[in-house]
Each structure stands twice: as structure tokens, then as C-alpha cells.
């Protein structure tokens, strides 16, 4: 199994380390040709405007859209924003996940927070969520499943088939359950082909 991590900007190394701990080799993707032969892709946290601009300059937008049609993709925080259909800002996004997202929905850095989460499909007790200038999913399309809401009801994890997105950062914790969860999506998809 080969899983890529979009390495334009952000905490891609943290995702690579998490994948390494569960025995999956990660490929850094900075140019379109590196998408070839990948079974899945993680879009890490970072500044979504920076990532969008670099993806445009290096002609990654269309190849990524094409990739996401059939191959599992997981976006965390800025990655979730980059996958969304509507982010309310004039910035390049992939638009592959049918949802409306509000960037920095919880406020500025002083409002960044941690909270324990109950995530649908994740066994073994609460998952510790780290939210940094995090986005919020305001609205989802009919086929998108809501996997997690924080205590005040706001949506922070969604899935639509092979596309998965979280507003928080599992890669900043030692808990590998969501990386396992994504790898399971990748394995399922590979088996079905």
C-alpha cells in the first residue's frame, strides 16, 4: 500500500510519522506526477490559502480532483477546507466534498482548543481533538455522513464514501486510531477494485 501526503505546506511530516508508526510508507506529493500509483492521500493541516495557491501554480488542482473521484483522501483542518465545495472565501479549493465550511470558525489562535470527542466508528473511548484556528462544517450534502460533533453541536468530522475530513489534528496526538481508520478506507477501496 502506498499513501501520499500532500507536502506543499503544513504539518505533513507529522502525518508521515503517524503513518510510519502503523507501518505504512508515505510518499511526499509536491508535483502531479507523484500521485501516480498512490492508493490514498492525506492533505495535512496548514494554511489553506497557501496550499491552494501552490497547488494552482504547480498544476495540482485538476489532478487532485481526478484522484479524489476514485481514491481515498483524508483532509485534516486546512485539508478539510481545501476539500470543501464552499468555503466562503475567494481561494482555490478542490470542491470534492459536498459541504459548506467556515474557516477559522472558532476564532483566532487564542481560541484554539482541545476537547475530547466521540467519533462514530471509532471504538475504545473518546478521541482527544486538537483544534487550531479550526474550520467548522456548517452544512453537508445529502450523501455526506456526519461522524462527529463537538459538545456545542458543531460538526467537526465527516465522510462521504472514500472521502474523509476532520477539522482537528489527530497527527498532533499519539492516538493513531484515525490513521488506522483512514488506512482501512484505503484497504477497502483497494479490495473493491
Amino acid at each position: 500500500m502506498k499513501v501520499g501526503v500532500l507536502a506543499l505546506q503544513g504539518d505533513f511530516q507529522e502525518h508521515e510519522q503517524a503513518l510510519g508508526k502503523i507501518g505504512v510508507a508515505a510518499v511526499e506529493v509536491r508535483l502531479p506526477e507523484r500521485l501516480e500509483g498512490l492508493d490514498g492521500l492525506i492533505i495535512p493541516g496548514g494554511e489553506s490559502t497557501t496550499v491552494g495557491k501552490l497547488a494552482t501554480t504547480f498544476k495540482l488542482i485538476d489532478p487532485l480532483k481526478e484522484f479524489a473521484k476514485t481514491t481515498p483522501v483524508w483532509g485534516t483542518c486546512g485539508g478539510l477546507v481545501f476539500m470543501a465545495k464552499d468555503v466562503g472565501f475567494d481561494q482555490p479549493v478542490l470542491g470534492v466534498l459536498d459541504m459548506v465550511v467556515e474557516r477559522n470558525a472558532f476564532g483566532r489562535q487564542v481560541d484554539s482548543f482541545e476537547e475530547d470527542l466521540d467519533i462514530k466508528g471509532i471504538e475504545g473511548g473518546p478521541f482527544h481533538g486538537v483544534f487550531i484556528r479550526a474550520p467548522e462544517v456548517k452544512q453537508v450534502g445529502p450523501t455526506v455522513e456526519i461522524l462527529c460533533r463537538i459538545q456545542d453541536g458543531r460538526i467537526v468530522a465527516v465522510r462521504n464514501g472514500h472521502l474523509f475530513a476532520t477539522a482537528f489534528h489527530p497527527e498532533l496526538t499519539d492516538d493513531l486510531r484515525l490513521h488506522h481508520y483512514f488506512i482501512e478506507i484505503v484497504a477497502e477501496k483497494s479490495r473493491s477494485i
Partner: peptide, 10 residues
């Protein structure tokens, strides 16, 4: 510290 991690590569 996590916020700085999001700035990496930038």
C-alpha cells in the same frame, strides 16, 4: 506549539 506546526514549510 501546534499552531507553529501548521506554519511549517511556509
Amino acid at each position: 506549539r501546534g499552531h507553529a506546526q501548521m506554519l511549517k514549510g511556509g
